[in-house]
Design a protein around this nucleic acid. Sequence first.
DNA 1: TACCCAAGAGAGAACGATCGCTCTTGACTT
DNA 2: AAGTCAAGAGCGATCGTTCTCTCTTGGGTA
Lengths: 206, 206
Amino acid sequence: MPPSAAPRPAKRSEPRERLLATASGLFYAEGIGSVGVNRIVSQSGVTLATFYRHFPGKEDLVVAYLRGVHDVVEQRASVLREEHRGADLVRAIGEEVASETGRPGFRGCAFINAASEFEDADSPVRRVVAEHRRWYYKLVRRAFDEAGHGYPGNAARHFLMLRDGAMTAGYLDGPVIARRTFGRGIDGLLRSIGLEPAVPHEDVED
Amino acid sequence: MPPSAAPRPAKRSEPRERLLATASGLFYAEGIGSVGVNRIVSQSGVTLATFYRHFPGKEDLVVAYLRGVHDVVEQRASVLREEHRGADLVRAIGEEVASETGRPGFRGCAFINAASEFEDADSPVRRVVAEHRRWYYKLVRRAFDEAGHGYPGNAARHFLMLRDGAMTAGYLDGPVIARRTFGRGIDGLLRSIGLEPAVPHEDVED
DNA sequence: TACCCAAGAGAGAACGATCGCTCTTGACTT
DNA sequence: AAGTCAAGAGCGATCGTTCTCTCTTGGGTA
């Protein structure tokens, strides 16, 4: 999921915020290992000393970056929970995923990408990733539960697997294929318990 | 690395092979950007000059690494194609995916991980990734076609999305969840056209 | 058989660049 | 007086890459 990297045109912002915003954009767009501290610092209009005054080290910046992405997703989810209920909420979350894959600059899930660069499952970065995934699972599971699904755990796991695949496909196969395939998958998941009307479908090349 | 240097293999293989084998192991286990040429070289018992005598640069080594992984998958697929037909072949490919996620040291899909480190879709590395994914799509699509699926393209896309998700889940959520969820998803995909008998299922926590 | 020589490999120095990070200094706020 | 910031020098390490030099090997020729 891409961070909502809204460029701060404001003349005056806290150095920490600018550092985090710059780092988030670069980390997501180019990968974490490919982006050096010096580049983040200079692109933020901040000095190296200032960076190390706000962050103990680069890893903490990475953790802050992922926490920021999580906060955006969580915020968005809470809005969706207010606007939708039951199966409609599941559909809304799915629509959120689908539209994410179509955003310009989309490069897949920030957490999955980050995890691929950190082999140690006990590292702070991987912990944040695991936390986020657990949170997401619970969110979807609760939605299926409230939708009256008999097996909300299974359904949520199924949903998450499709989501992870959709995020990957959105990056590597294109948003059109990702949206179409993901949409069909979610429809099928809801239809399997009578939560979605059956619709005609046609096969497509590529 | 501590001086516990691995004893030189009695039978000395070609330097190129050793370089590729070492690099493949390190690239997959730790990520491509995290592994330097010097480490690959010294761990291969080969000198820097020898490396650059066989590979124009690191990127070519990465391409060779991914091509090697592809060759293994392709080889395995051709065996499966000989042993299974129709829906059985689909199931066999699915079983292959599931068992992959359970292998010790499993860190997700080598191609997806590599792609996350290379932002330029036109780079040689990304091209190999795209090639592999196209090949895989055609493999599965043909299997569904021969299984008598009315919409083999849709089914193959669905399968691939579940596969990508399963590879991610196998790494980040554990092989047990990945196998179970993926298995259910594939079963549902086959059952939806009467290729799989309906079976009872129960919900699980986590 | 004796010789030569090109090719391949080992060993390692060294290139400029960048890595994450520490430190100092001086100007400007509280 | 204390704290934050810009500016920037500099740390040791590593990055990918190029280089020289020596040793071994195998094959062709005499």
